[in-house]
Amino acid sequence: MNTNQQHLFDAYRAAQRGELAPPQPGRHDWEALGEIRDHLRTGRPDARRRRKGWLRRLLSASWPTP
């Protein structure tokens, strides 16, 4: 059984139980690889999210809102 067949089986079982279907296989692979890379570089898996938040705070503080 490959991953797509397993996903269809799990989605069918979740529908029978009234639960949410699991995410599609491979949907979050790039995000997970980025977090692994950040963890290996900095020791913190959420380093990329912290950088994005820092940049967003910097830009919102320096640009006046209309």
Rank of each mutant, 00 (worst) to 15 (best):
Y12V: 05
M1V: 08
L33G: 00
D46M: 13
R49S: 15
P22G: 02
G53K: 00
E31L: 05
Q6W: 08
R56W: 07
R17E: 14
R41W: 10
Q6E: 15
T42N: 05
L59D: 10
R50Q: 15
S62P: 01
E31M: 05
R41N: 13
R44E: 14
R17V: 08
D46L: 12
A15L: 06
H7F: 06
A14Q: 04
P66R: 12
G34C: 14
D10S: 02
G26I: 02
Q24E: 13
D29F: 12
H7E: 01
R37E: 07
R50L: 15
L40R: 15
P22L: 01
L20S: 15
P22T: 02
G53A: 06
Q16G: 00
A32N: 02
P66Y: 08
E19P: 15
P25C: 11
A11L: 06
A11C: 12
N4G: 09
D29G: 07
Q16M: 01
P45F: 10
G18V: 02
N2G: 10
R44Y: 14
W63A: 13
I36A: 10
H7Y: 08
N4Y: 11
R48E: 12
A32V: 04
R27W: 13
W54L: 08
P22Y: 00
G34M: 14
A11T: 10
G43E: 01
L58N: 04
Q5H: 07
A21E: 13
T65H: 02
A47D: 04
N2M: 04
L33I: 06
R41V: 12
G18A: 01
M1C: 06
N2S: 10
Q24R: 14
R50N: 15
E31W: 04
R56Y: 08
T65C: 00
Q5D: 11
P66D: 11
S62M: 13
A47F: 01
D38L: 09
E19W: 14
N2L: 05
H7R: 02
A14S: 05
E35S: 11
S62A: 11
R51K: 07
N2I: 04
R57N: 07
R17W: 10
P66S: 09
L40G: 14
G34E: 14
H28W: 03
